[in-house]
Design a protein around this nucleic acid. Structure first.
Lengths: 339, 339
DNA sequence: CTGTTAGCGCTTTCAA
DNA sequence: TTGAAAGCGCTAACAG
């Protein structure tokens, strides 16, 4: 079903059909009606490839994410999808499992697919091979969650957020506060959040505990258990994401520790599911969906203006602390072992 | 960067460049090398739109899902994505929030995007307006999770699975077993699982309890609480999905009921997260990722053979019961109120 | 084995 | 306001 058929049926030229759809004002109302009617009768759908070939615009955005198994990214992708549809764009998402080679492959794939722009969550903007490739190609892109002075980013202040969370725990009387993180090397977010932990501890004059680092993908509950059996054990855990917080709570349970009575746990991400858990997760919430939406909006605007995004277009969105049930005041002396 | 430039640089015709990539055997090794070298030096990427326009094959699959906020669908999408990449296809996912009009819009959008095939999870295959549209367009498609004799489907036996779960609970001594479901009208899966509940109860000669029906999207914990406060209350809950099971556990907690001591809860879906919860979720697991993978494989095969999928290509995958900690034997007399 | 060429469906000058 | 026609980049006859 091509534009030819519509033109024939409407008794006009293909140019007029094209105009009737793309520049309706440049066509007389009467002919426009005829064209629309013919198109409807023939169930005409304009061919996206032909249009893309001609205009050099695919109206498709590429999306590069570590995984959809973390609901934070799933929420973000929903935000991206909604904003993209609203702006008349389709999306092609690709997941990378936190692997650099996959990031590069993904960008390659998307570039070959003629995407008009990309929104991506990379392991580390400084080391990602994908980014120089994008710059070389001159394709607009924006990073989500990542933070880097040299790239356009939509993110939150992870460092400040964690420092605040630490301060909160200190206010509750906690002294032995440890941080649980995914592999630091695999994520600049994890690194920033860890820095926030160190700052928060330093600000209140407490000794930072050794970082409890576990793999991102596997469950690693045993490793967590081992850490909780150490003496003296922490009375509170700041986790680098909600999934880790959930696993930490389970690990605590397996060690015979009750959350929050024996151990306070704070997460990071604000996944919706956290509110339905028991105990409800105390967590630093990020506007996951908005991060995606803003990324898309920046991208679409840049595309419309035929330019790439500069790093000073970066957006820092607000985070918040969601008070759940996984945090409680520490014992008087702040030493969990005596509880 | 077009094929012309590569041809010029390699000193051959565009046809030869095209062959060097698509039919390497039909080109002499020497020229092939020259072409490859030229392409590399120019960072040549074949233009997907031009190729699609010419071949009438986009190498893109459309994916229609209710939501990514349910990890079961996120897992499925990962499976789809992996299989698609392996088969040289890209995917365009669209979510519908369980809404019929969105399903139709999604199919429309995807069809206009020239997808070669679709994999979709619809509310109800019998009533979906999207399906006739697809048949009319002659585009190959396959349903995931849905079950219907008139369409190609990749699914599990939800009815049998729930009936089995009920039998299991009966074996544990439960008598007052209720079912918690999302809006029945919005999902044929929910309907089938409910039928499984009714069959399971009938098989063991028990009275079915009134269905506890809550919205899919909202949390609805209050509604659940109300049901648990009724006397005599159920001693076990079979939930139509894991998200509902998680909410049910929270509702129980808010009512002062301990899971599994006072109330047993069984979920459905087998989301990975369920294993990390406390109590670990007892649930009927579906091979979410495999459902997606098989769907894509069927689709790719059909596309390669230039045909649509017939309903007898349907696949029924195995489910399993994953024993967690949210189920326990009932009190001796099976009457929860006396526990 | 390689080159020439038509044409996929559309948008967009340029002319009328 | 409308039409004719070029051409986006590629593949696939067909010819050599």
């Amino acid at each position: 079903m091509s534009i030819q058929a519509v033109a024939a049926r409407a008794g006009v030229s293909v140019a007029t059909v094209s105009r009737a759809f793309n520049l309706p004002d440049k066509v007389s109302p009467a002919t426009r009606q005829r064209v629309e009617r013919a198109a409807r009768e023939l169930h005409y759908l304009p061919n996206a490839s032909a249009r893309t070939l001609r205009t050099q615009r695919s109206r498709v955005l590429g999306v590069v994410l570590p995984t959809l198994l973390n609901p934070a990214f799933a929420e973000c992708l929903q935000g991206i999808a909604r904003a993209a549809v609203a702006g008349g764009y389709a999306i092609i998402p690709v997941t990378t499992a936190y692997r650099l080679d996959e990031e590069e492959r993904a960008v390659q794939l998307l570039l070959a697919g003629n995407v008009d722009g990309l929104i991506l969550v990379v392991s580390n903007p400084s080391t990602s091979a994908a980014l120089p490739r994008l710059q070389a190609a001159g394709v607009p892109y924006v990073l989500a969650y990542n933070r880097h002075a040299g790239h356009p980013c939509v993110s939150v202040d992870g460092q400040g957020a964690v420092a605040d969370a630490v301060a909160r725990l200190v206010l509750l009387g906690h002294r032995r506060i440890a941080m649980v993180s995914g592999t630091l090397a695999a994520s600049d977010r994890a690194q920033q959040r860890y820095r926030g932990y160190l700052r928060g501890m330093a600000d209140t004059g407490l000794d930072a505990q050794p970082l409890i680092e576990v793999p991102f993908v596997e469950t690693a509950i045993e490793a967590l258990c081992a850490q909780l059996r150490a003496r003296p054990r922490p009375s509170a855990l700041v986790c680098s994401n909600d999934l880790l917080a959930i696993r930490s709570i389970r690990a605590a349970h397996l060690c015979g520790l009750a959350v929050p009575q024996d151990l306070s746990v704070v997460g990071f991400d604000g996944i919706a599911l956290g509110e339905d858990l028991t105990p409800a997760l105390s967590t630093i919430t990020q506007p996951n969906s908005d991060i995606g939406r803003h990324g898309v909006e920046l991208l679409i605007q840049a595309i419309a203006e035929g330019r790439t995004l500069r790093s000073d277009a970066s957006l820092l969105l607000a985070h918040a602390f969601r008070d759940g049930e996984s945090c409680a005041p520490a014992c008087e002396d702040g030493d969990a072992a005596t509880c």
